[in-house]
Nucleic acid binder design. Structure first.
Lengths: 290, 290
DNA sequence: AGAATTGTGAAAAATTTATCACAAACGAAC
DNA sequence: GTTCGTTTGTGATAAATTTTTCACAATTCT
């Protein structure tokens, strides 16, 4: 295929693997706000990408242009063509795929779920829930069901770093009654229950509530029966073009909660995280992040 | 309304009637290929509009800019904002919360991640990956790391229903070498590896590849080293306003893959699902869905 | 330790912008 | 049709900015 048919974006992406660190940094910066960032002065591009001016100059030539102005001229030409061409209109998410492609249909649905869910959420309730979860005086129990235990686990993994005194309970396990033995009325239960709602989860929630624990519930738009006894509950839309439901929206809420709780506890978290980093370094489990 | 909220295009159109001949000519030329023409050199704009250089300079100042570069900077800023928000109108997602609330900031970031990722994905590669995963002749191994194992588990839970012959391996476990003993060259490995990339995962991938297995990789925008040996890899953007990364985009891809694979295997899946339903009913694990 | 990559600082070259004075062109009014 | 005021273009120039390119030092990776 001739270069003429390829956008600069395509060309950069194709070369991405052959690039060195600084070049890749630059490439990402160009793609980040494509094509706007490439249309400013060279020095601004270098600054945004945190690379030096010569690096940009060298890269532009590697891409086959005589100089930066020529590079910009082609970017403008692309932009001209794209705006002119109604087909290039962004009504699909994955450019190369037809709008009926599963990638586009699914993404539409998920975005729609997010919009609906966020539109109905009560920010004060959310803040209150975050405060509960962040409170290190309280024991934190995270409960998930057959599918939702992955969300529970995800939340647990992060909370474990952010604060002490966290437990992950799987309602499908039959060991959970033990955990409830020493529930105090200051405890907080974060419970995930989406359809099909699980009897075990409901029973667990009831027992926790009887012992005075606070209950924060993540459920779907039809609401788990747990919501009647929950102190705070969030319902995420989960409908997608699939035989299954989507956890996307709920994951978004969970991640936001993690971030908020992190901020609330930053003082303690920082020390804990550094400690953890050190332990990971020692085990050499991870590669150095470059 | 303050000028800040108006695009340059709006401002020009509003003034259109008060302009003189040469100025109007220029204005139309700017709007003709908006905003591309305004992003080139001043002299080129003058030439395209068939007006003189001073006319352009004067006009730009009439529009309230200190000079042409400032004019261009604002055009670029508009472009940046526009590309970022194809769905925009929503300046906040959670209506009740200020735009600076974590809920809104986080959602913005996730949507942005999705848009970026989908924009760069190769639908053919995606389809190919789905076909591999759907192929029941091949054994399917799903591998996750310390955090990503929740995604692996999630994919596993669904694949388990959709098709036989699925295994979930946790790279952090030290039991995984056993699983590789009888790897055949028809096997498919779906591997999740996000920063910080895990050495265990890389080793596992290498061994799998040496034995001829196909490798499908889900990673982040900086790409796990596994991507060099992967047959197909997908990089999702994961940046969010948090000390942690977001799995949102990758979850979207995984769920889409589940749905696609489900469709490919619908004939068999149907029977398997009904069977499973029956088993769940017997265990009374779930409440009847109303 | 050596090779490759990247940054620094500077200077020169090239381009672009901003302005000027003045003349030409134009349009409206008389 | 002439006149006057406005608008526009010309050509030139100064100023500002940007691009391009060095050599060399610092850094990173192998």
């Amino acid at each position: 295929m001739s270069d003429a048919a390829l956008t600069i974006s395509d060309r950069i992406q194709r070369k991405l693997d052959d690039l060195t660190r600084a070049e890749r940094q630059l490439a990402h910066s160009i793609l980040e706000n494509y094509p706007a960032s490439g249309l400013g002065p060279l020095s601004a591009l270098a600054r945004d990408a945190n690379v030096s001016v010569p690096t940009v100059a060298r890269m532009v030539q590697k891409l086959g242009f005589k100089g930066y102005p020529e590079f910009q001229a082609e970017l403008r030409e692309e932009l001209r063509a794209k705006v002119k061409n109604p087909i290039a209109k962004h009504d699909t998410w994955a450019d190369g795929a037809p709008s009926g492609h599963m990638l586009n249909r699914f993404t539409d649905a998920v975005i729609d779920n997010i919009r609906h869910t966020l539109g109905q959420i009560d920010p004060d309730a959310f803040d209150a829930a975050c405060a509960l979860v962040a409170d290190q005086e309280r024991r934190l129990c995270i409960v998930g069901g057959r599918i939702t235990h992955v969300l529970a686990e995800y939340l647990f993994l992060h909370m474990q770093v952010i604060r002490p005194n966290v437990t992950h309970i799987q309602s499908t396990s039959n060991a959970w009654p033990h955990y409830l033995l020493d529930t105090k009325d200051s405890d907080v239960f974060v419970i995930f229950d989406m359809r099909r709602y699980e009897n075990n989860t409901l029973k667990l929630a009831q027992m926790a509530q009887e012992q005075g624990a606070k209950i924060v519930l993540f459920t779907d738009q039809w609401r788990s029966p747990v919501h009647q006894i929950a102190d705070i509950s969030f319902s995420g839309r989960i409908v997608v073009p699939s035989a299954w439901d989507s956890l996307g929206t709920t994951l978004l809420l969970v991640e936001t909660m993690i971030s908020s709780v992190q901020n609330l506890n930053w003082h303690d978290t920082k020390a804990r995280m550094e400690e953890l980093e050190g332990m990971f370094d020692q085990t050499k489990l991870f590669r150095k992040f470059t």
